[in-house]
Structure formats: C-alpha cells, structure tokens
C-alpha cells in the first residue's frame, strides 16, 4: 500500500471518534499490534533519546524496502510508534525520505511531534529517515 493510502486508512479509523478519550483508547489498542523489536536489539544502542518515555527502534532492509520494529515503556507512546511504523515500514527509502506526516494533524495527534513534547517521537521520525538514508546510500 502507498504511504498516502495508509495515512488515509488511519485518518478513517480515527474519524469516528470525537472524544479524546476514545481516540486515546484506540491509540492504546493500536500499540498492542506494534511489530515487536527482538530482545537482542532492545539495548541502549537502539534507544531513541527522549525525555520521558523510552522508545527502542530497529530497522532492516530487504528487497528494496525498509522494515521497522520497536517498543516503548509507555503505552500511548507505543500507539504512536505503531502509527509511524504502519506508515514507514515496508516502504522504499525514497518514499520514507519524502514522507509528509500531515495525517498526524488530521487525527489530532500533531502535538506529539512538537519538540516541546519531549517524548522522543520527533527524534524517532528523524531516526527512521536516517535509517532510510543509510540504506539508500548502501544499496543505491
């Protein structure tokens, strides 16, 4: 699926909820489907530096596409991590490098990507793009 259609699917999933609590309930549930990082990668080397909740991220490259796995010690963070993985994973490095994260605004979660939020998600997006850049250079 293209990045645009995945984002549209996510927007549709959230569109039925007006109430913040319902949105966050959905997010918490989504966190449970996160492609889990293998124990061997759940180390400080794979830790995204964020202030409050911890996020571990791993990337691999197969047949021209990048695959991400992750985990977090906070369930809301994990839900957002999974949203980002749904968008970024199984995409080509070029698609990842050019992604527009406007969908987060449309579902009302843009605040989580603000630098002041200090939950490391902005760093996570940067890290995902960094992986994409490295895979592109190595295999380009």
């Amino acid at each position: 699926m293209s990045i645009e259609s995945i984002q549209q699917t996510i927007i549709d999933e959230f569109s039925s909820f007006d109430d913040w609590m319902d949105k966050y309930n959905l997010l918490i549930e989504m966190g449970k489907d996160t492609p889990m990082i293998e124990a061997q990668y759940k180390t400080n080397n794979h830790l995204i530096s964020g202030c409050q909740s911890r996020v571990w991220l791993h990337a691999s490259y197969r047949d021209g596409k990048v695959y991400f796995t992750a985990d977090s010690d906070a369930v809301i963070t994990k839900g957002i991590v999974n949203l980002l993985i749904r968008v970024f994973s199984e995409q080509t490095p070029d698609a990842i490098l050019n992604v527009d994260l406007g969908f987060l605004d449309k579902i009302g979660l843009k605040e989580h990507l603000s630098p002041t939020r200090s939950n490391g998600l902005l760093s996570m997006v940067k890290q995902m793009k960094m992986y994409a850049q490295v895979f592109k250079l190595k295999n380009g």
């Binding site: 913040w20 966050y24 202030c51 409050q52 909740s53 906070a74 369930v75 809301i76 963070t77």
Partner: peptide, 20 residues
C-alpha cells in the same frame, strides 16, 4: 502505568500537572 501515559490522559481531561 508509565507517568507519561497517565499525564497525557489527565491533560485531555483538563488537568494540568507534571510528569517525569
């Protein structure tokens, strides 16, 4: 429960407090 999770939901219920 991670303090960030609790703080995020309390914020959505109008309660300003500190986590971390």
């Amino acid at each position: 429960i991670h303090p960030f999770d609790l703080g995020t939901l309390l914020d959505k219920m109008g309660i300003a407090l500190r986590t971390g």
